[in-house]
């Protein structure tokens, strides 16, 4: 099984946010594919990358490295690499590596929305 990537720019009405749907496997082979897709987006213009992992069935350390790399390239003050809708086996992997700075796994869309709204508010307050 391979990896399918769908990129949705300007997600959630926010210009500096992209939503990326991942489905299939993010492994030692397919992680290069994701890296390639992400590369043009990592030019410093984005605050947040939201990964919707509903269709992702497998992730290995190679996949995590790509996410960490993406995080380093986003010079965000307010966002980061945000993940939502992860299946239990994916959540388990993130639990084992505990908190990676700037990589946040949300349990639900509602939780993510709340976080994004909070971020929006801070931006508008000029912080």
């Amino acid at each position: 099984m391979s990896l399918r990537i769908e990129i949705d720019r300007n997600a959630a009405g926010a210009e500096r946010t992209a939503r990326i749907h991942l489905a299939g496997r993010l492994d030692t082979v397919t992680s290069a594919q994701l890296e390639k897709e992400l590369d043009p987006m990592l030019d410093g213009r984005l605050d947040s990358l939201i990964f919707d992992l509903a269709g992702l069935e497998f992730i290995s350390s190679a996949g995590i490295r790509v996410l960490v790399h993406a995080r380093k390239s986003i010079q965000a003050q307010h966002g980061g690499v945000l993940m939502v809708n992860a299946q239990p086996q994916i959540v388990k992997v993130f639990e084992i590596i505990k908190a990676l700075p700037g990589l946040t796994v949300f349990e639900s869309e509602a939780e993510l929305d709340q976080y994004l709204a909070e971020m929006q508010r801070r931006v508008q307050e000029g912080r």
Binding site: S61, R65, V68, K72, V93, I96, I97, G102
Partner: peptide, 15 residues
């Protein structure tokens, strides 16, 4: 953040 993520794989295996 610039530190390489060495040993992440084997850490997952142990986990």
């Amino acid at each position: 953040e610039n530190q390489p993520l060495g040993g992440l794989g084997i850490h997952l295996v142990r986990g």
